[in-house]
Amino acid sequence: MKILAVCGFGVGSSMVLKMTLDKVVKELGIEATVENTDIATAKATDADVYFTSAELESDLEASTDKPVYAVKRYMDKNEVGARLKEYLATREEK
């Protein structure tokens, strides 16, 4: 599974989100690659799921048919984990 953490410039907040996603992925025992990137690159990069801010969510959703999840607190493992679990639940339904 490929997970993208996305922010405006692909440097600050997406890196923080990536590190939190890495921790959650490890705790859940999921086989996944987590990368961080900027919004323009994310629009051209295929991934299984995208995590970003509420401000960028609709812009990213318009450019992909894959799930996009907004996160408010990038360092909050509980929030990030809950969003990732939402995604995993939708995958299991298919």
Rank of each mutant, 00 (worst) to 15 (best):
M1G: 08
M1S: 08
M1K: 06
K2W: 05
I3E: 09
I3L: 07
I3V: 12
L4C: 15
L4I: 08
A5R: 03
V6M: 01
C7F: 04
F9P: 02
G10A: 03
G10K: 02
V11L: 13
G12F: 04
S14P: 11
M15I: 05
V16P: 01
L17H: 08
L17M: 10
K18T: 09
T20K: 04
T20Y: 01
T20F: 04
L21Y: 05
L21A: 09
L21E: 11
K23G: 08
K23Y: 06
V25D: 15
K26Y: 02
E27V: 02
E27H: 08
L28A: 07
L28T: 05
I30K: 12
I30G: 11
E31M: 04
E31W: 01
A32E: 12
A32F: 07
T33W: 09
T33S: 14
V34E: 15
V34R: 08
V34M: 14
N36R: 09
N36S: 15
T37S: 10
T37F: 06
T37W: 09
D38Q: 03
I39P: 00
A40N: 08
T41W: 00
A42R: 00
A42F: 00
K43Y: 00
A44W: 00
T45G: 00
D46L: 06
D48Q: 08
D48L: 10
Y50R: 00
Y50W: 02
Y50F: 07
F51P: 01
T52D: 14
S53Y: 03
E57P: 02
E57S: 05
E57Y: 01
E57I: 03
S58L: 07
S58I: 04
D59M: 07
D59C: 06
L60D: 06
E61L: 08
E61R: 11
A62L: 13
A62M: 11
S63L: 04
S63N: 13
T64M: 13
D65F: 01
D65A: 07
K66I: 13
V68D: 13
V68Y: 04
Y69A: 15
A70K: 07
V71T: 09
V71N: 10
V71R: 11
K72H: 12
R73E: 14
R73N: 15
R73I: 09
R73S: 15
M75C: 03
M75K: 09
D76G: 13
K77G: 07
K77L: 15
E79A: 11
E79W: 05
G81I: 03
G81E: 10
R83I: 02
L84H: 07
L84R: 03
K85V: 12
Y87R: 01
Y87F: 14
A89P: 10
A89H: 04
A89C: 08
T90R: 07
T90L: 12
T90C: 14
E92N: 03
K94L: 12
